[in-house]
Each structure stands twice: as structure tokens, then as C-alpha cells.
Design a protein around this nucleic acid. Structure first.
Lengths: 191, 191
DNA sequence: ATCTATTTGAAATGAACGTTTCAAAGGTAT
DNA sequence: ATACCTTTGAAACGTTCATTTCAAATAGAT
């Protein structure tokens, strides 16, 4: 029957993600994507639809990648607070080495008010993150390892806010130690 | 002698700032700026140089505006901690009403890795903000109203990080109360 | 009124953009 | 081999972009 797809869709998304991460959505041209993926222009349109569609795929891939790592961290961590810490450290490790910030947070600044589909994704992501932190906080508060000065919801909002801040801090600051210090100070409130 | 400038440069910058804030740098076209300012295309180039030059002017104006308000707040505030609080509240008040985030933080995501002049400005801004918080913290620690669990530098990094987070949070979250809660939790560490 | 330097308007420039088109090439199954 | 449908390459499409150009209008100083 037909000729089958010769390229690996996941690989292409990975390559495209890197470009989008490096240059932002607006500053990434279709030519950049052609160059980075080695694919033909038509193949990209055939397989992904449009530049925006491909971008959305990259966002989803980026998030599911993050989710995987987080799941691993939370299951291996000894305490909820250690789990939270390792999520934060994962974040600065991936953001300080390249000074690019988090793809999703960059997207928020750039696109949240421009594209409804993007806004939807971001809202969804936000809720997921809040839930993630809320669960961990509740677990810690139940165990007694996290204080109950604030509700799990208040702490979740606080933690996510700090994590988002680290995305921007990671773009400007080059010193890993400074970012580590921020994490330490941020989490010290929970004990 | 010559015909003099008929328009007010500051007004033009204000109008341009609004456009850049609404649409980001990349998504703002020269036509958008012509429409928003009422100026002729040539006049913009004559007076400001290029789109990027005008953008830089807007960033500077935005920052000096912020600085003015901060100066007023810090001089009228009864305590350093109240001063810090009012800076945070000013921030969420200006960012939650429009869901646009902070112009400078948006710029960080979008442009920090694209334009050296911008990166320079952002680094400078970062240092200024750190110094602002550091001074307030030191004052509070000297007076005894702020604890010494962390150094003024560590607290300054922590506070700026949270403030940057609020810029992103303000884009996604619509509930002013939630942002207020974040501020409250963030500052509770200082007492 | 005249000169002079500037602003203005409108059109033009040339490059880059995202997307489409379509004939040719390519691989799979009959 | 042949038929089938996909991928591929290259060119072209129509827009939009930032910027330039330049003659005409404009206004302060002489």
C-alpha cells in the first residue's frame, strides 16, 4: 500500500521544541523548523497542520516530559517536602544551564493573550500544577512534616508562584547557587 | 528657524508602551504603532530610530514610572515590611486588572536571549531591584522588625523571585484574592 | 515675504513570512 | 510488474514586515 512515514514524529517534536525554546514562537520561522528537523516543508504541514499546531504539540510534549520526571521524583522521594524540593531543583537545573527559562512560562508571557487554544492549555496546566502541590502539601500536613500555618491551597499557590519566578530568574541569573538559595528560602516556610 | 516637533514624546512613548504591553514586541507591527500614536511612520523613525529603539525607550519609561511609584511608597510606608508589601500590591494591582503581566518580565521571556542591548537593560534592572529589596530588608533587620533567619541578600533574591512569579501568575489567574494570598504567604517569612 | 530646517504623507523597497501547489519520487502490497 | 497512496522537493503564492525615499507642507527666524 502507501509509502509510510519515514521520520519519527517524537524526534521531530523534540527538535522543534528546542527551536521554539531557543527563539520563542514568534521569532521561530518555518524555515528554522525545516532546518532543525531536516523535514520537508510540506511534510511538516502534512503531519502537523500549521506552525501553531506544531507548537501546541511541543507544549504538550514538554509538559508530559515534565510530568514523567515529576512522577518519578514524587514516588522515590522520602517525604513530600523532599519531593517538592526535587521538583524545584529539577526546574532550576533545566533552566539555569541554558538561560532559556521554562517553555511554558515563556509561552504564557508571549501567547496567553493572543491565542484561545493556548490560553486553554495554560489554564489546564496551571490547575494541574496547583493540584500537584496541593496533594503533596496535604500529605505532608497529614504526616506532620509540613506545618498548618497556611492551607494546602495557599501553600500550593505560593509554591507555584515561586516556581514561575524561577523561570524568569533562571533567564537572568547565571549563578546556580543563587537559584538554590531561592529554593531553600522558599521551602523553609513549610517546616 | 526649523519647524519644531508638534507631538509630545512622552505621550507617544506611553501610547507605544501600551501596544507593546498588549501584543508583545514581535507581534507589534510598525503599523500598530502608527495607528496607536497617530504619528506618521517617518516621524517615528525620525524621532526614535527603529522599532527596537522605541521599544527600549518604552522599557525605560516603564521602569522609571515604576521607580517613581516605589520611591513614593517607600518614603510613606511606616515600616520596611509595609513598604515591601505595598510594592507587591502595586504589582498585582497593575497586573491583575489587565492580565498582561509585567512588561519587563514579558520582555525577559521574549527578548533576553535575542538582543544584547535588552539583556543589558534587564541585568541592570535586576541589580536595581535586588538592591531595593536588600536595602529595605537591612533596614528592617536593623530595626528588628524583620528576622535574621536569612541574610538581606538571600531575602532580596527570594522576594524578587516571588515578584517575578506574580507577573506570570497575574496573566493566568483572574482572582485578585488569590494573588493577595500569595503576597501574604510570601511576606510571612519575614516576621 | 523669504529662507531654512523639519515634519509629514504616501508610495515604494526588498526581504521574510506562513502556507499552498503539484509533478516527481518512493515504498508497500497485490 | 503494476497499482496505490504518501512523501518529497522546489517553486510560487499572496501577505506582511521594517525601513527608506522624497516631494510637498509647515512653521519659526530673518
Amino acid at each position: 500500500m502507501p509509502k509510510t512515514e519515514t521520520f519519527n514524529k517524537e524526534t521531530v517534536i523534540k527538535q522543534a521544541t528546542e527551536v521554539f525554546h531557543n527563539k520563542s514562537y514568534s521569532l521561530t520561522s518555518m524555515q528554522d523548523l525545516v532546518d532543525a528537523t531536516g523535514l520537508n516543508r510540506s511534510s511538516i504541514y502534512n503531519s502537523f497542520g500549521s506552525k501553531l499546531d506544531l507548537y501546541m504539540e511541543c507544549l504538550k510534549s514538554y509538559r508530559s516530559n515534565f510530568k514523567c520526571k515529576v512522577e518519578e521524583l514524587t514516588t522515590t522521594a522520602k517525604t513530600p517536602i523532599k519531593a517538592i524540593e526535587s521538583i524545584f531543583l529539577l526546574n532550576i537545573k533545566t533552566n539555569v544551564t541554558n538561560n532559556l527559562g521554562c517553555l511554558i512560562n515563556n509561552c504564557t508571557s508571549e501567547m496567553a493573550n493572543q491565542e484561545a487554544a493556548i490560553k486553554n492549555f495554560l489554564n489546564n496546566n496551571h490547575e494541574n500544577m496547583i493540584q500537584l502541590f496541593k496533594d503533596l502539601i496535604e500529605k505532608g500536613q497529614f504526616e506532620g512534616s509540613i506545618n498548618t500555618n497556611k492551607s494546602s491551597n495557599q501553600y500550593a499557590l505560593y509554591l507555584l508562584n515561586s516556581l514561575q519566578g524561577l523561570s524568569i530568574s533562571g533567564i537572568i541569573m547565571n549563578d546556580y547557587k543563587h537559584l538554590e538559595s531561592i529554593v531553600k528560602t522558599t521551602l523553609s516556610i513549610l517546616n
